[in-house]
């Protein structure tokens, strides 16, 4: 059983239609039935609701997407700071 589901943005060139993408690759409530009850749902954003992931999943109790996106901003800021010559102890 899956412990973590990490959705990604779709590759539009390789999938014929949004409908087929959602039916076979989309993270839906039905698909979630095959994962552990405590599974974590992640997505780097921005979300195409109803395509990569359904709202009921993205906004559900298992979703940590908002935390991931919030933390992602801080992590990017920190990386850019270090790459531009900043120091950890400053």
């Amino acid at each position: 059983m899956l412990s973590l589901l990490y959705a990604c943005k779709r590759n539009a060139k390789k999938i014929p239609t949004l409908r087929e993408y959602r039916n076979f690759f989309g993270l839906t409530a039905d698909a979630l039935q095959h994962a552990k009850p405590e599974v974590l749902i992640m997505h780097p954003g921005p979300i195409n609701r109803g395509v990569e992931i359904d709202s009921v999943v993205a906004d559900g109790a298992n979703s940590v997407i908002l935390d991931q996106v919030t933390n992602g901003v801080a992590v990017r800021m920190a990386v850019m700071y270090l790459l531009s010559g900043g120091r950890v102890d400053e």
């Binding site: 999938i15 014929p16 239609t17 409908r19 087929e20 039916n23 076979f24």
Partner: peptide, 14 residues
């Protein structure tokens, strides 16, 4: 491909 036209992929998974 849709319509055998060789331009858009058919929904092969479905």
């Amino acid at each position: 491909s849709v319509g055998h036209a060789g331009k858009a992929l058919a929904e092969m998974l479905e």
